[in-house]
Design a protein around this nucleic acid. Structure first.
Lengths: 244, 244
DNA sequence: CGAATAGTGTCTCTTAGACATTATTTA
DNA sequence: TAAATAATGTCTAAGAGACACTATTCG
Protein backbone atom coordinates (compact mmCIF):
# COMPACT_ATOMS: atom_id res chain seq x y z
CA UNK A 1 0.00 0.00 0.00
CA UNK A 2 2.89 2.33 0.70
CA UNK A 3 5.46 3.36 -1.84
CA UNK A 4 8.69 4.11 -0.06
CA UNK A 5 9.63 6.74 -2.60
CA UNK A 6 6.36 8.60 -2.10
CA UNK A 7 6.55 12.17 -0.88
CA UNK A 8 3.71 14.47 0.02
CA UNK A 9 2.95 17.09 -2.62
CA UNK A 10 4.02 20.69 -2.11
CA UNK A 11 1.33 23.31 -1.95
CA UNK A 12 1.23 27.10 -2.09
CA UNK A 13 -0.44 28.79 0.84
CA UNK A 14 -2.21 32.11 0.53
CA UNK A 15 -4.29 34.28 2.82
CA UNK A 16 -7.34 36.27 1.77
CA UNK A 17 -9.09 38.94 3.78
CA UNK A 18 -12.75 39.79 3.97
CA UNK A 19 -12.59 43.26 5.49
CA UNK A 20 -15.99 44.55 6.49
CA UNK A 21 -17.00 48.00 7.61
CA UNK A 22 -20.03 50.28 7.71
CA UNK A 23 -20.45 53.16 5.30
CA UNK A 24 -23.66 55.14 4.91
CA UNK A 25 -25.48 52.64 7.10
CA UNK A 26 -24.61 49.81 4.75
CA UNK A 27 -22.20 46.96 4.99
CA UNK A 28 -19.15 47.31 2.73
CA UNK A 29 -16.28 45.04 1.84
CA UNK A 30 -12.82 46.14 0.75
CA UNK A 31 -11.89 45.05 -2.75
CA UNK A 32 -8.73 45.76 -4.71
CA UNK A 33 -8.10 45.83 -8.40
CA UNK A 34 -5.52 43.19 -9.19
CA UNK A 35 -2.28 44.56 -10.58
CA UNK A 36 -0.83 41.27 -11.76
CA UNK A 37 -1.94 38.15 -13.56
CA UNK A 38 -3.98 36.11 -13.18
CA UNK A 39 -7.20 38.09 -13.25
CA UNK A 40 -5.27 41.31 -13.76
CA UNK A 41 -7.63 44.25 -13.63
CA UNK A 42 -10.55 42.48 -11.96
CA UNK A 43 -11.69 43.01 -8.42
CA UNK A 44 -10.49 40.68 -5.70
CA UNK A 45 -10.04 40.40 -1.98
CA UNK A 46 -6.82 41.70 -0.46
CA UNK A 47 -4.41 38.88 0.22
CA UNK A 48 -1.30 37.11 -0.91
CA UNK A 49 1.10 34.29 -0.39
CA UNK A 50 3.00 33.48 2.74
CA UNK A 51 6.25 35.43 2.67
CA UNK A 52 8.40 32.54 3.79
CA UNK A 53 7.99 29.08 5.18
CA UNK A 54 8.26 30.30 8.76
CA UNK A 55 5.67 33.01 8.69
CA UNK A 56 2.65 32.42 10.90
CA UNK A 57 -0.58 32.38 8.90
CA UNK A 58 -2.37 34.96 10.99
CA UNK A 59 0.75 37.13 10.91
CA UNK A 60 0.65 36.95 7.13
CA UNK A 61 -2.97 38.05 7.20
CA UNK A 62 -2.08 41.05 9.37
CA UNK A 63 0.83 41.89 7.11
CA UNK A 64 -1.37 41.89 4.00
CA UNK A 65 -3.98 43.89 5.89
CA UNK A 66 -1.33 46.49 6.48
CA UNK A 67 0.33 46.40 3.07
CA UNK A 68 -2.78 46.39 0.95
CA UNK A 69 -5.21 48.32 3.09
CA UNK A 70 -3.07 50.30 5.49
CA UNK A 71 -4.93 48.84 8.45
CA UNK A 72 -3.65 47.66 11.81
CA UNK A 73 -5.18 46.63 15.12
CA UNK A 74 -8.44 45.34 13.73
CA UNK A 75 -10.54 42.43 14.86
CA UNK A 76 -9.38 39.38 12.92
CA UNK A 77 -10.65 35.84 12.97
CA UNK A 78 -10.21 32.73 10.82
CA UNK A 79 -13.05 32.21 8.40
CA UNK A 80 -12.41 29.10 6.34
CA UNK A 81 -10.04 27.31 3.99
CA UNK A 82 -10.51 27.31 0.25
CA UNK A 83 -8.43 24.73 -1.54
CA UNK A 84 -10.37 23.35 -4.45
CA UNK A 85 -7.98 22.14 -7.16
CA UNK A 86 -8.10 24.50 -10.10
CA UNK A 87 -9.21 27.56 -8.20
CA UNK A 88 -5.94 29.27 -9.10
CA UNK A 89 -4.20 28.77 -12.47
CA UNK A 90 -0.76 29.21 -10.92
CA UNK A 91 -0.92 25.79 -9.32
CA UNK A 92 -2.34 24.19 -6.22
CA UNK A 93 -3.07 27.18 -4.04
CA UNK A 94 -4.79 26.73 -0.72
CA UNK A 95 -6.09 29.93 0.77
CA UNK A 96 -6.87 30.60 4.39
CA UNK A 97 -9.49 33.32 4.58
CA UNK A 98 -9.78 35.69 7.52
CA UNK A 99 -12.63 37.93 8.52
CA UNK A 100 -11.62 41.45 9.57
CA UNK A 101 -13.96 44.02 11.07
CA UNK A 102 -13.10 47.72 11.22
CA UNK A 103 -14.88 50.91 12.28
CA UNK A 104 -15.88 53.35 9.60
CA UNK A 105 -12.76 54.88 8.08
CA UNK A 106 -12.34 58.51 7.02
CA UNK A 107 -11.48 57.90 3.36
CA UNK A 108 -11.17 55.06 0.90
CA UNK A 109 -7.79 53.61 1.76
CA UNK A 110 -5.06 53.50 -0.83
CA UNK A 111 -3.06 50.32 -0.83
CA UNK A 112 0.63 50.23 -1.55
CA UNK A 113 0.60 47.03 -3.59
CA UNK A 114 -2.76 46.90 -5.23
CA UNK A 115 -3.58 49.16 -8.10
CA UNK A 116 -6.66 50.52 -6.44
CA UNK A 117 -8.58 49.76 -3.28
CA UNK A 118 -12.21 50.59 -2.88
CA UNK A 119 -15.06 49.94 -0.52
CA UNK A 120 -17.88 48.14 -2.26
CA UNK A 121 -21.28 47.59 -0.76
CA UNK A 122 -21.78 43.93 0.01
CA UNK A 123 -24.96 43.99 -2.00
CA UNK A 124 -23.06 45.13 -5.09
CA UNK A 125 -20.16 42.76 -4.52
CA UNK A 126 -22.48 39.77 -4.33
CA UNK A 127 -24.74 40.79 -7.19
CA UNK A 128 -24.36 38.77 -10.32
CA UNK A 129 -23.16 41.85 -12.20
CA UNK A 130 -19.93 42.20 -10.27
CA UNK A 131 -17.02 40.07 -11.37
CA UNK A 132 -14.71 38.88 -8.64
CA UNK A 133 -11.46 37.00 -9.15
CA UNK A 134 -11.03 33.34 -8.23
CA UNK A 135 -13.69 32.05 -5.82
CA UNK A 136 -13.77 35.34 -3.96
CA UNK A 137 -17.49 35.85 -4.29
CA UNK A 138 -18.06 32.70 -2.31
CA UNK A 139 -15.56 33.86 0.30
CA UNK A 140 -17.28 37.23 0.65
CA UNK A 141 -20.63 35.51 1.05
CA UNK A 142 -19.22 33.21 3.72
CA UNK A 143 -17.69 36.17 5.55
CA UNK A 144 -20.92 38.13 5.58
CA UNK A 145 -22.85 35.12 6.79
CA UNK A 146 -20.30 34.61 9.54
CA UNK A 147 -20.61 38.22 10.62
CA UNK A 148 -24.38 37.95 10.72
CA UNK A 149 -24.44 34.96 13.02
CA UNK A 150 -21.58 36.17 15.20
CA UNK A 151 -23.48 39.37 15.87
CA UNK A 152 -26.06 37.30 17.69
CA UNK A 153 -23.82 35.57 20.14
CA UNK A 154 -20.71 37.69 20.49
CA UNK A 155 -19.72 41.31 21.03
CA UNK A 156 -18.48 41.53 17.44
CA UNK A 157 -20.72 44.52 16.74
CA UNK A 158 -18.51 46.77 18.87
CA UNK A 159 -15.65 46.06 16.47
CA UNK A 160 -17.57 48.03 13.83
CA UNK A 161 -17.66 51.07 16.13
CA UNK A 162 -14.95 53.39 17.33
CA UNK A 163 -13.54 53.40 20.84
CA UNK A 164 -16.75 54.88 22.16
CA UNK A 165 -20.19 54.80 20.64
CA UNK A 166 -23.82 55.48 21.36
CA UNK A 167 -26.45 52.83 21.59
CA UNK A 168 -28.13 54.01 18.42
CA UNK A 169 -24.82 53.73 16.60
CA UNK A 170 -24.61 50.15 17.81
CA UNK A 171 -28.15 49.62 16.61
CA UNK A 172 -27.17 50.82 13.15
CA UNK A 173 -24.51 48.14 13.06
CA UNK A 174 -27.06 45.44 13.70
CA UNK A 175 -29.49 46.91 11.22
CA UNK A 176 -26.89 47.18 8.47
CA UNK A 177 -25.40 43.72 8.92
CA UNK A 178 -28.69 41.96 9.39
CA UNK A 179 -30.47 44.07 6.81
CA UNK A 180 -33.52 44.64 8.97
CA UNK A 181 -34.99 47.42 11.10
CA UNK A 182 -35.05 47.18 14.86
CA UNK A 183 -37.15 48.90 17.49
CA UNK A 184 -34.86 51.36 19.31
CA UNK A 185 -36.60 50.92 22.64
CA UNK A 186 -36.44 47.15 22.70
CA UNK A 187 -32.90 47.28 21.36
CA UNK A 188 -31.99 49.50 24.27
CA UNK A 189 -33.35 47.05 26.79
CA UNK A 190 -31.74 44.05 25.17
CA UNK A 191 -28.31 45.56 24.76
CA UNK A 192 -28.30 46.75 28.34
CA UNK A 193 -29.46 43.38 29.55
CA UNK A 194 -26.58 41.51 27.92
CA UNK A 195 -24.07 41.38 30.74
CA UNK A 196 -20.56 42.59 29.99
CA UNK A 197 -21.45 43.70 26.47
CA UNK A 198 -21.09 47.47 26.83
CA UNK A 199 -20.09 49.79 29.69
CA UNK A 200 -20.87 53.48 30.15
CA UNK A 201 -18.17 56.03 29.47
CA UNK A 202 -19.59 59.59 29.76
CA UNK A 203 -22.07 61.78 27.89
CA UNK A 204 -21.79 63.64 24.61
CA UNK A 205 -23.92 65.95 22.55
CA UNK A 206 -22.77 65.24 19.01
CA UNK A 207 -25.91 65.73 16.96
CA UNK A 208 -27.22 69.14 15.94
CA UNK A 209 -30.53 68.64 17.66
CA UNK A 210 -32.03 66.19 20.03
CA UNK A 211 -31.07 64.99 23.47
CA UNK A 212 -27.42 64.02 23.70
CA UNK A 213 -26.70 60.35 23.95
CA UNK A 214 -24.63 58.52 26.53
CA UNK A 215 -21.39 57.06 25.34
CA UNK A 216 -20.36 53.47 25.85
CA UNK A 217 -17.35 51.34 25.14
CA UNK A 218 -16.93 47.63 24.58
CA UNK A 219 -17.40 45.63 27.77
CA UNK A 220 -15.26 42.78 29.08
CA UNK A 221 -17.22 39.82 27.75
CA UNK A 222 -17.06 38.45 24.23
CA UNK A 223 -19.87 35.92 24.43
CA UNK A 224 -23.27 37.45 24.95
CA UNK A 225 -25.75 36.24 27.48
CA UNK A 226 -28.54 36.58 26.80
CA UNK A 227 -27.79 36.57 23.07
CA UNK A 228 -29.09 39.19 20.66
CA UNK A 229 -31.55 36.91 18.94
CA UNK A 230 -32.42 37.80 15.39
CA UNK A 231 -36.09 37.03 15.00
CA UNK A 232 -38.48 38.55 12.52
CA UNK A 233 -39.02 41.87 14.22
CA UNK A 234 -40.46 44.14 11.61
CA UNK A 235 -39.64 47.78 11.19
CA UNK A 236 -41.68 49.99 13.50
CA UNK A 237 -44.43 51.62 11.46
CA UNK A 238 -44.53 55.39 11.46
CA UNK A 239 -47.97 57.00 11.74
CA UNK A 240 -47.62 58.01 8.10
CA UNK A 241 -47.12 54.93 5.96
CA UNK A 242 -46.07 56.90 2.89
CA UNK A 243 -42.69 58.08 4.16
CA UNK A 244 -39.54 56.14 3.28
CA UNK B 1 9.37 46.46 -2.29
CA UNK B 2 9.18 43.48 -4.60
CA UNK B 3 12.02 41.20 -5.42
CA UNK B 4 11.52 39.80 -8.88
CA UNK B 5 13.24 36.56 -7.97
CA UNK B 6 10.93 35.98 -5.02
CA UNK B 7 8.81 32.87 -5.05
CA UNK B 8 6.16 31.84 -2.58
CA UNK B 9 7.26 29.12 -0.15
CA UNK B 10 5.98 25.59 -0.58
CA UNK B 11 4.27 23.93 2.35
CA UNK B 12 2.85 20.49 3.11
CA UNK B 13 -0.86 20.07 3.49
CA UNK B 14 -2.40 17.49 5.81
CA UNK B 15 -5.89 16.62 6.94
CA UNK B 16 -6.84 15.57 10.45
CA UNK B 17 -10.13 14.06 11.54
CA UNK B 18 -12.02 14.49 14.76
CA UNK B 19 -14.39 11.53 14.61
CA UNK B 20 -17.01 11.63 17.32
CA UNK B 21 -19.49 8.99 18.37
CA UNK B 22 -21.51 7.90 21.36
CA UNK B 23 -20.56 4.88 23.43
CA UNK B 24 -22.12 4.00 26.78
CA UNK B 25 -23.91 7.35 26.80
CA UNK B 26 -20.63 9.21 26.61
CA UNK B 27 -18.97 11.13 23.84
CA UNK B 28 -15.94 9.37 22.35
CA UNK B 29 -13.29 10.36 19.86
CA UNK B 30 -11.35 8.02 17.61
CA UNK B 31 -7.61 8.02 18.23
CA UNK B 32 -4.90 5.97 16.59
CA UNK B 33 -1.50 4.95 17.82
CA UNK B 34 1.05 6.41 15.46
CA UNK B 35 3.10 3.80 13.60
CA UNK B 36 5.74 6.13 12.26
CA UNK B 37 7.85 9.02 13.43
CA UNK B 38 7.40 11.66 14.61
CA UNK B 39 5.53 10.86 17.81
CA UNK B 40 5.70 7.15 17.04
CA UNK B 41 3.67 5.23 19.58
CA UNK B 42 1.69 8.14 20.95
CA UNK B 43 -1.99 8.72 20.34
CA UNK B 44 -3.10 11.03 17.57
CA UNK B 45 -6.02 11.88 15.37
CA UNK B 46 -6.48 9.93 12.15
CA UNK B 47 -5.19 11.89 9.19
CA UNK B 48 -2.41 12.30 6.71
CA UNK B 49 -0.98 14.22 3.83
CA UNK B 50 -2.66 14.98 0.57
CA UNK B 51 -1.92 12.12 -1.79
CA UNK B 52 -1.11 14.31 -4.75
CA UNK B 53 -1.35 17.93 -5.77
CA UNK B 54 -4.70 17.41 -7.44
CA UNK B 55 -6.56 15.71 -4.63
CA UNK B 56 -9.45 17.68 -3.21
CA UNK B 57 -9.02 18.38 0.50
CA UNK B 58 -12.36 16.97 1.58
CA UNK B 59 -11.76 13.95 -0.63
CA UNK B 60 -8.49 13.40 1.19
CA UNK B 61 -10.34 13.57 4.49
CA UNK B 62 -12.82 10.94 3.32
CA UNK B 63 -9.99 8.76 2.05
CA UNK B 64 -8.21 8.87 5.41
CA UNK B 65 -11.50 8.24 7.15
CA UNK B 66 -11.82 5.09 5.12
CA UNK B 67 -8.19 3.97 5.30
CA UNK B 68 -7.60 4.57 8.97
CA UNK B 69 -11.02 4.00 10.44
CA UNK B 70 -12.89 1.94 7.87
CA UNK B 71 -15.70 4.46 7.76
CA UNK B 72 -17.69 5.82 4.85
CA UNK B 73 -20.81 7.91 4.40
CA UNK B 74 -20.48 9.89 7.59
CA UNK B 75 -21.36 13.48 8.27
CA UNK B 76 -18.24 15.54 7.57
CA UNK B 77 -17.63 19.25 7.93
CA UNK B 78 -14.62 21.56 7.94
CA UNK B 79 -13.48 22.47 11.42
CA UNK B 80 -10.45 24.74 11.23
CA UNK B 81 -6.92 25.16 9.93
CA UNK B 82 -3.89 24.56 12.10
CA UNK B 83 -0.69 25.90 10.65
CA UNK B 84 1.49 27.26 13.41
CA UNK B 85 5.16 27.05 12.40
CA UNK B 86 6.87 24.32 14.36
CA UNK B 87 3.79 22.23 15.04
CA UNK B 88 5.33 19.42 12.99
CA UNK B 89 9.06 18.65 12.99
CA UNK B 90 8.95 17.44 9.39
CA UNK B 91 8.63 20.97 8.08
CA UNK B 92 5.92 23.51 7.51
CA UNK B 93 2.80 21.42 7.71
CA UNK B 94 -0.59 23.07 7.53
CA UNK B 95 -3.43 20.83 8.59
CA UNK B 96 -7.08 21.17 7.68
CA UNK B 97 -9.15 19.54 10.38
CA UNK B 98 -12.57 18.03 9.73
CA UNK B 99 -15.28 17.08 12.15
CA UNK B 100 -16.93 13.71 11.50
CA UNK B 101 -19.98 12.38 13.31
CA UNK B 102 -20.96 8.72 13.25
CA UNK B 103 -23.60 6.55 14.91
CA UNK B 104 -22.51 4.08 17.54
CA UNK B 105 -20.48 1.36 15.89
CA UNK B 106 -20.57 -2.36 16.75
CA UNK B 107 -16.91 -2.78 17.63
CA UNK B 108 -13.73 -0.75 17.95
CA UNK B 109 -12.66 -0.30 14.34
CA UNK B 110 -9.32 -1.64 13.23
CA UNK B 111 -7.47 0.62 10.87
CA UNK B 112 -5.37 -0.64 8.02
CA UNK B 113 -2.61 1.93 8.33
CA UNK B 114 -2.47 2.85 11.94
CA UNK B 115 -1.03 0.46 14.46
CA UNK B 116 -4.12 0.53 16.61
CA UNK B 117 -7.35 2.49 16.60
CA UNK B 118 -9.43 2.97 19.71
CA UNK B 119 -12.37 4.97 20.91
CA UNK B 120 -11.40 7.20 23.79
CA UNK B 121 -13.87 9.11 25.89
CA UNK B 122 -13.54 12.80 25.22
CA UNK B 123 -13.11 13.37 28.91
CA UNK B 124 -10.06 11.10 28.97
CA UNK B 125 -8.63 12.48 25.73
CA UNK B 126 -8.74 16.03 27.04
CA UNK B 127 -7.52 15.24 30.54
CA UNK B 128 -4.02 16.37 31.29
CA UNK B 129 -2.93 12.75 31.77
CA UNK B 130 -3.42 11.77 28.15
CA UNK B 131 -0.63 12.57 25.74
CA UNK B 132 -1.67 13.48 22.22
CA UNK B 133 0.67 14.05 19.30
CA UNK B 134 1.23 17.50 17.75
CA UNK B 135 -1.47 20.02 18.66
CA UNK B 136 -4.17 17.38 18.49
CA UNK B 137 -5.53 18.03 21.95
CA UNK B 138 -6.42 21.52 20.88
CA UNK B 139 -8.05 20.16 17.73
CA UNK B 140 -10.12 17.69 19.71
CA UNK B 141 -11.24 20.44 22.06
CA UNK B 142 -12.24 22.62 19.14
CA UNK B 143 -14.17 19.77 17.55
CA UNK B 144 -16.11 19.00 20.72
CA UNK B 145 -16.94 22.64 21.21
CA UNK B 146 -18.13 22.85 17.62
CA UNK B 147 -20.36 19.81 18.10
CA UNK B 148 -21.82 21.30 21.25
CA UNK B 149 -22.86 24.54 19.61
CA UNK B 150 -24.01 22.93 16.37
CA UNK B 151 -26.37 20.73 18.33
CA UNK B 152 -28.28 23.84 19.28
CA UNK B 153 -28.94 25.21 15.85
CA UNK B 154 -28.71 22.29 13.44
CA UNK B 155 -29.95 18.74 13.07
CA UNK B 156 -26.44 17.40 13.73
CA UNK B 157 -27.70 15.24 16.58
CA UNK B 158 -29.37 12.87 14.12
CA UNK B 159 -25.94 12.10 12.64
CA UNK B 160 -25.07 10.38 15.94
CA UNK B 161 -28.05 8.07 15.53
CA UNK B 162 -28.78 5.27 13.11
CA UNK B 163 -31.24 5.51 10.26
CA UNK B 164 -34.12 5.44 12.69
CA UNK B 165 -34.15 6.32 16.35
CA UNK B 166 -36.44 7.00 19.26
CA UNK B 167 -36.82 10.37 20.88
CA UNK B 168 -35.14 9.20 24.05
CA UNK B 169 -32.17 8.02 22.01
CA UNK B 170 -31.98 11.49 20.54
CA UNK B 171 -32.17 12.90 24.03
CA UNK B 172 -29.21 10.76 25.06
CA UNK B 173 -27.20 12.37 22.29
CA UNK B 174 -27.90 15.82 23.64
CA UNK B 175 -27.19 14.76 27.19
CA UNK B 176 -23.90 13.12 26.29
CA UNK B 177 -22.57 15.91 24.12
CA UNK B 178 -23.70 18.70 26.40
CA UNK B 179 -22.87 16.81 29.55
CA UNK B 180 -26.13 17.71 31.26
CA UNK B 181 -29.43 16.02 32.07
CA UNK B 182 -32.62 17.02 30.30
CA UNK B 183 -36.27 16.66 31.21
CA UNK B 184 -37.73 14.01 28.88
CA UNK B 185 -41.14 15.67 28.71
CA UNK B 186 -39.88 19.11 27.82
CA UNK B 187 -37.39 17.57 25.43
CA UNK B 188 -40.25 15.81 23.71
CA UNK B 189 -42.15 19.02 23.22
CA UNK B 190 -39.15 20.92 21.98
CA UNK B 191 -37.92 18.34 19.54
CA UNK B 192 -41.38 17.93 18.07
CA UNK B 193 -41.77 21.69 17.84
CA UNK B 194 -38.64 22.13 15.74
CA UNK B 195 -40.04 21.99 12.23
CA UNK B 196 -38.39 19.59 9.82
CA UNK B 197 -36.08 18.14 12.47
CA UNK B 198 -37.46 14.62 12.74
CA UNK B 199 -40.26 12.73 10.98
CA UNK B 200 -42.17 9.66 12.18
CA UNK B 201 -41.32 6.29 10.69
CA UNK B 202 -43.26 3.50 12.47
CA UNK B 203 -43.37 1.91 15.92
CA UNK B 204 -41.04 -0.53 17.64
CA UNK B 205 -40.89 -2.40 20.89
CA UNK B 206 -37.17 -2.83 21.47
CA UNK B 207 -36.81 -2.64 25.21
CA UNK B 208 -37.58 -5.56 27.51
CA UNK B 209 -40.14 -3.65 29.49
CA UNK B 210 -42.00 -0.43 29.13
CA UNK B 211 -44.19 1.00 26.43
CA UNK B 212 -42.62 0.73 22.97
CA UNK B 213 -41.37 3.93 21.48
CA UNK B 214 -42.19 5.48 18.14
CA UNK B 215 -39.40 5.54 15.61
CA UNK B 216 -38.27 8.64 13.77
CA UNK B 217 -35.77 9.49 11.10
CA UNK B 218 -33.94 12.68 10.25
CA UNK B 219 -36.20 15.31 8.74
CA UNK B 220 -35.57 17.52 5.72
CA UNK B 221 -34.25 20.64 7.46
CA UNK B 222 -30.72 21.16 8.70
CA UNK B 223 -31.19 24.45 10.52
CA UNK B 224 -33.48 24.21 13.50
CA UNK B 225 -36.25 26.63 14.22
CA UNK B 226 -36.87 27.10 16.99
CA UNK B 227 -33.36 26.13 18.10
CA UNK B 228 -32.66 23.65 20.88
CA UNK B 229 -31.40 26.20 23.36
CA UNK B 230 -29.01 24.90 25.95
CA UNK B 231 -29.88 26.64 29.18
CA UNK B 232 -29.28 25.42 32.68
CA UNK B 233 -32.07 22.90 32.96
CA UNK B 234 -31.20 20.68 35.87
CA UNK B 235 -31.85 16.96 36.09
CA UNK B 236 -35.40 16.17 37.15
CA UNK B 237 -35.51 15.19 40.82
CA UNK B 238 -37.09 11.87 41.67
CA UNK B 239 -39.45 11.82 44.66
CA UNK B 240 -36.83 9.84 46.56
CA UNK B 241 -33.61 11.79 46.66
CA UNK B 242 -31.53 8.82 47.74
CA UNK B 243 -31.89 6.80 44.54
CA UNK B 244 -29.34 6.90 41.74
C1' DC C 1 -51.53 -6.30 39.37
C1' DG C 2 -46.93 -3.69 39.38
C1' DA C 3 -42.87 -2.03 37.16
C1' DA C 4 -41.06 0.47 33.60
C1' DT C 5 -40.87 3.46 29.81
C1' DA C 6 -43.59 6.50 26.29
C1' DG C 7 -46.24 10.32 25.52
C1' DT C 8 -49.63 14.40 26.82
C1' DG C 9 -51.37 18.18 29.53
C1' DT C 10 -51.11 22.05 32.70
C1' DC C 11 -49.24 25.70 35.41
C1' DT C 12 -46.14 29.54 36.27
C1' DC C 13 -42.70 32.71 35.46
C1' DT C 14 -39.69 34.90 32.31
C1' DT C 15 -39.10 37.52 28.30
C1' DA C 16 -39.64 39.28 23.54
C1' DG C 17 -41.99 42.48 21.00
C1' DA C 18 -45.49 46.40 20.51
C1' DC C 19 -46.08 50.85 21.83
C1' DA C 20 -46.86 55.12 25.25
C1' DT C 21 -44.55 58.28 27.80
C1' DT C 22 -41.11 61.19 29.81
C1' DA C 23 -36.42 63.56 29.48
C1' DT C 24 -33.04 66.62 27.50
C1' DT C 25 -31.03 69.07 24.12
C1' DT C 26 -30.94 73.02 19.93
C1' DA C 27 -33.16 76.51 17.30
C1' DT D 1 -42.31 77.06 21.97
C1' DA D 2 -41.45 73.23 18.55
C1' DA D 3 -38.60 69.69 16.72
C1' DA D 4 -35.67 66.03 17.36
C1' DT D 5 -33.48 62.38 19.54
C1' DA D 6 -32.53 59.70 24.10
C1' DA D 7 -34.13 56.93 27.65
C1' DT D 8 -37.70 54.54 30.58
C1' DG D 9 -42.07 52.22 31.45
C1' DT D 10 -46.13 49.23 30.54
C1' DC D 11 -48.83 45.69 28.43
C1' DT D 12 -49.54 41.22 26.24
C1' DA D 13 -48.71 37.01 24.29
C1' DA D 14 -45.47 33.27 23.56
C1' DG D 15 -42.21 30.10 25.28
C1' DA D 16 -39.26 27.66 28.83
C1' DG D 17 -39.03 24.91 32.63
C1' DA D 18 -41.36 22.25 36.48
C1' DC D 19 -44.15 18.56 37.17
C1' DA D 20 -48.83 15.67 37.29
C1' DC D 21 -50.97 12.58 34.68
C1' DT D 22 -52.38 9.09 31.18
C1' DA D 23 -50.98 5.24 27.87
C1' DT D 24 -48.96 0.88 26.63
C1' DT D 25 -46.02 -2.73 27.03
C1' DC D 26 -43.92 -7.13 29.85
C1' DG D 27 -43.94 -10.41 33.49
Amino acid sequence: MFDDSWEPPAILLAVDLVILTLRDSRLHVLLIERGIEPHRGTLALPGGFLRDANEDIEDAARRELNEEAGLADVHLEPLNVYGEPGRDPRGRVVSVAYLAITPRLPEPVAGTDAVRACWTSVEDALSSDAELAFDHRRIVADGVERARTKLEHTALATAFCGETFTISELQQVYEAVWGIQLDPRNFYRKVQGARGFIVADGPLRRTANGRPARLFRAGPDQVLYPPMVRTAHVAPQGPNGSAN
